[in-house]
Computed example of a mutant assay.
Amino acid sequence: MEIKGTHTFSAPRDVVWDALMDPTVLAKALPGGEKLEKVDENRYKAAMHVRVGPVQGRFEGEVELTDIQPKERYRLRVSGQGTPGFVNGEGTLELQDTEDGGTLLQYAGEAQVGGRIASVGQRLLDSTARSLVRQGLQALEEQLQARLHPPEEAPAAEAEPAPANGGQAKAASATEGDATEGGDAQASAPSTSKDASTSTSSTSAGTGPSATRVAVQVARDVAQDLASDYIPPEKQERVFFFMLGALAMLLFTVLVRLVQRD
Rank of each mutant, 00 (worst) to 15 (best):
G166L: 11
T98R: 09
A118S: 15
P155T: 09
G115H: 04
Q168F: 09
L140S: 08
L132M: 14
P150Q: 06
L132H: 08
Q143N: 01
A118G: 10
E176C: 02
Q106L: 01
E176H: 06
Q168W: 14
V120F: 04
G101W: 11
S173Y: 10
P151K: 15
Y107G: 06
L137Y: 13
S131R: 07
A108Y: 03
R134E: 13
E99H: 06
Q143C: 00
L125N: 03
D178F: 01
E141Y: 07
R116Q: 13
G121D: 01
I117D: 05
I117G: 05
S119W: 04
Q168I: 07
I117A: 08
Q145W: 02
G101Y: 09
L124Q: 06
A139Q: 10
E141K: 13
S119G: 14
A172E: 06
A171S: 08
E152G: 12
A146Y: 04
S127C: 02
R123V: 02
Q112S: 15
E158V: 08
A172W: 07
E153I: 02
E99W: 01
A118F: 08
A129E: 04
G102Q: 11
I117T: 05
R134S: 15
A154Q: 12
E110H: 14
E152A: 14
S131F: 01
T175Y: 03
A111C: 13
R130W: 01
A171F: 11
P150V: 07
G114L: 04
P155K: 14
G102S: 11
E153W: 02
A162R: 12
R134H: 13
A159F: 00
A156S: 09
G109R: 09
P155Q: 07
T103H: 09
P151Q: 12
A172T: 04
A172N: 14
S119R: 15
A157S: 10
